[in-house]
Design a protein around this nucleic acid. Structure first.
Lengths: 99, 99
DNA sequence: CCAACTCATAGCATCGACGCTATGGGCTGG
DNA sequence: CCAGCCCATAGCGTCGATGCTATGAGTTGG
């Protein structure tokens, strides 16, 4: 990644800063989710525009999300999940112990 | 629950409205997460105030969250998870197939 | 009966996520 | 070479989630 984005860079820095533990985790989560959605979308052979329509949002929103531009809201995640015909799973799980 | 809250009621109505599918799902998720946190907290024998301190927020925020007053942000969920020494798990999973 | 603690809300300010529209660059088929 | 589609951002306005502070009700111990 060269340096196309802006927030992409900012977020990177943020994630590098010490003490930003939780913020870091959230950003990472956002990034991974974005990635996941992208793969699912491509898997279906859809364009961002198509997914956007299906999820009731705009192409720009999808792009921003996939790129990890913001920490998504549960509402949005839910919408995307539906559009992709998936189930959104959010839960607290033990750190190391059994499940 | 009589009718102590305000948003509690509003949210109820919202959830009842047709076509509010995703909003409904999000609200439900919020409610369940709130419940989960409450149980975890009580399990540790902590007061909302204690958890709030541990998670870097105020008692009111914890109360609002546990009551399902708002759809929490991933950032907040992450903070709570840490405070409770748990791991926040967010993922897209198939609707019916295996987990 | 009072003090102290716990939890539920209210009210207010701020910040960030989302929605929309408009571009710009990259690719591809005519 | 132009038209058309795809994706990445930029800007801007709005709304909702959080944070804080201040109460009020319910409990409990002294």
């Amino acid at each position: 990644m060269t340096e196309r984005a802006d927030w992409a860079e900012l977020r990177q820095r943020r994630m590098a800063e010490p003490g930003a533990d939780e913020a870091y985790a959230a950003a990472r989560l956002a990034f991974e989710l974005g990635h996941a959605v992208r793969e699912l979308r491509e898997g279906l052979g859809w364009s961002q525009t198509q997914l956007a329509r299906a999820a009731g949002m705009t192409q720009s929103a999808v792009a921003r999300f996939e790129a990890g531009g913001t920490v998504p809201t549960l509402v949005v995640l839910e919408r995307l999940a539906r559009a992709l015909d998936m189930r959104l799973d959010v839960r607290f799980s033990p750190l190391a112990d059994a499940a």
